[in-house]
């Protein structure tokens, strides 16, 4: 089940998107997400879907993989959309029962919530699939840098983020092993009522927690033994390279922006 989820995963590759600077990708993703929220006409949605489709093609990964990966999240999206559908007043009322109603505004809102969610999740998935966790951490560090002025511990935060991301696969492996060990002792994780399922989680969570703490402890010891004192005075091995492709990407987005403005005026 966990294995199917694609959001947050990284697939090493050599596509144009893979090679873009992580700062460029983070900035552009943020920017596109804002645009999605500002989107209000159908033409723009169509345009955004074509854009996202193009981005997927650029990743070099199969479309089916994206669709299956979003599968586990689709119910969350549908649920949100249905709430909008049944509780939004306004416009023409088609049907009405107690607090529930079906209105023309409701339908429009539900559809656009559904589309927005879908677009945002797909874009976030594209970002993590094509950007190594390390690069994301570096990109975040670069973007946080201005906060140094207010004495925000940017370097430590970035290292923490990078170590945390680095341990995600290890902890997922560990969770799988513990789950298997408890299944072998007769626990059924996917069976029974809610209470039974909740109780089955305890023998998973406690060992996972104990394990994570002892791992963190060992890691802290190893870091200390290698001279890590936190704070300043550290040099950096990895530097980010802004290349012409990154500038191109930013320019493309600006062009997209102009197109969108034009669309707005068409309406």
């Amino acid at each position: 089940m966990l294995e199917q989820l694609t959001l947050g995963r990284y697939v090493p590759g050599q596509s144009i998107l893979h090679r873009l600077d992580s700062r460029a990708k983070l900035l552009l993703s943020l920017y596109l997400i804002v645009i999605v929220f500002l989107t209000s006409n159908w033409l723009t949605y169509v345009f955004m879907f074509i854009l996202v489709g193009g981005l997927i093609a650029m990743t070099g990964l199969k479309v089916g993989y994206f669709i299956r990966g979003i599968g586990p999240l689709i119910w969350l999206i549908v649920f949100t959309a249905v709430l909008q559908l049944l509780f939004t007043p306004g416009g023409h009322v088609y049907w009405h029962w107690g607090v529930l109603m079906l209105t023309s505004t409701g339908i429009a809102t539900a559809v656009s919530v559904f589309l927005r969610f879908l677009l945002i999740i797909t874009m976030a998935t594209i970002l993590t699939l094509t950007t190594a966790p390390l690069a994301i951490a570096d990109g975040v560090e670069a973007m946080l840098k201005p906060l140094r002025i207010v004495h925000f511990p940017v370097a430590q935060t970035a290292l923490m983020l990078s170590v945390a991301l680095r341990f995600v696969p290890t902890l997922l492996d560990e969770a799988t092993t513990i789950m298997n060990a408890q299944r072998a002792r007769g626990v059924e994780f996917n069976n029974g009522g809610l209470i039974k399922r909740l109780r089955a989680i305890v023998p998973l969570l406690i060992p996972l927690f104990v394990g994570a703490i002892s791992r963190a402890d060992e890691l802290a010891t190893a870091m200390e033994a290698r001279g890590y004192q936190g704070g300043d005075g550290r040099t950096k091995y990895r530097v980010l390279h802004w290349r012409s492709a990154d500038t191109m990407a930013v320019i493309s987005v600006l062009i997209i922006n102009i197109v969108l403005v034009v669309f707005r005026h068409l309406n």
Binding site: A181, Q182, A184, R185, P203, G211
Partner: peptide, 21 residues
């Protein structure tokens, strides 16, 4: 599979990592 789980006991690597009670 439950009967099979009981029939075949499985000791994983570093099994002490599964203790919880």
């Amino acid at each position: 599979l439950k009967d099979l789980h009981q029939h075949v006991g499985m000791v994983f690597q570093f099994p002490e990592n599964q203790l919880f009670d």
